Amino acid sequence: MRMTFRCDPALEPHLPRPVPARTTLPDWLRRMPASAHSDLHGRDIRTVKQCPPFVDAMAHGVMILLPCDIQVERGAFSWDWDIPAPATAGHPRAPLSFHVAAQFEGAPFAHDRQSAIKFNSFWTIECPEGWSLFATHPVNRDDLPFRTVTGLVDADRFHDGGINFPALWIAPDYCGVVPKGTPVAQCFPVPREALELVYEPFDADHGIAYSETVAQVLAAPNVYRKRFRARRGRLTS
């Protein structure tokens, strides 16, 4: 599996590269204790820091990063990004643009005729034949002051133009800087082949396996991590 990222040669020295998502795990997750006391249980229980599916989802794929600091004053956005003119005709130079509210009128995330911001793309993305690019808000990152809108792009075919990432700004009173390098979209390739859905009741062997698996998970910690979690290959560049 190969994802190829390309950019304008004049801008390449100024752009943060897309990075493996596992390298952008947030500080709040690193600081979280492995266990915490539960009044309901009357004992310490494991936190989501010890939940491999929770962490693996956050570490999956690649992260697109904000290319420069963005100053925000209650919904007004500005930046001071000194970069050369792109060498490519029609290429954006601003880190942000916008979608007017009419473009998503009636959607559940539309609020008070508020425009959406759009994180402009400075990298094209090419996936192998038969694979599309799934782009979404950085997983479990409710700490970010925006919500990136999820999209699916056939990046094996559309790979010579930038993929932009629309987002809703959800912190109307925010005043401060969204720093360069902030994750703005989490991306990973997905196969486009049709799914075959099969439905069937447990047979005797599956019923026994279900009961044994549940009993093992309830009896000891880290059963999933030790017995079922697949080893992740390291991303290379």
Rank of each mutant, 00 (worst) to 15 (best):
I125K: 03
H14C: 04
S121A: 15
P221E: 13
V139A: 15
A155C: 10
H60P: 00
R232G: 05
P128R: 00
F165D: 03
L11T: 00
V100T: 14
P33C: 07
Q50A: 07
M63R: 06
P52M: 00
P145M: 04
H41E: 15
V178H: 06
I125M: 06
H159W: 07
H37N: 04
F134N: 14
G151Y: 00
P18M: 09
A36K: 12
K226E: 15
M58C: 09
H159A: 12
P95M: 09
E212T: 13
R74F: 06
M58W: 07
V139I: 08
M32R: 13
A220L: 11
A76V: 15
H159L: 04
V62K: 02
V153E: 03
A101M: 02
D82G: 10
K49R: 15
F54E: 14
C68Y: 01
R229L: 04
G181R: 02
S237L: 14
F228R: 01
N222T: 09
Q216T: 07
I64E: 11
P189T: 12
D27A: 12
G176Q: 04
L11S: 03
L15A: 05
Y224H: 13
L25P: 10
Q114E: 14
I163Q: 08
P145H: 08
V223H: 06
G42S: 08
A85K: 12
A155P: 06
Y199H: 12
Y210S: 01
F98N: 03
V19Y: 00
V184H: 03
R147A: 14
R192S: 14
L197H: 08
D44K: 11
V149Q: 05
F122R: 00
R17V: 15
D173L: 04
L197E: 10
A219G: 12
A87I: 09
P16G: 02
E196T: 15
V223W: 03
L168F: 11
R17G: 08
M63V: 09
A219V: 05
D39A: 02
L11Y: 00
W169Q: 07
P183E: 09
P67Q: 03
F228K: 07
G162A: 13
R17F: 11
G161N: 13
L152Y: 03
P84V: 12
L40C: 07
F77L: 06
V55Q: 04
F228S: 04
P128A: 11
R147G: 01
S38D: 11
A57I: 01
A87T: 11
A107V: 05
D142K: 04
V55E: 04
P9N: 05
M1I: 09
T213W: 05
H14R: 02
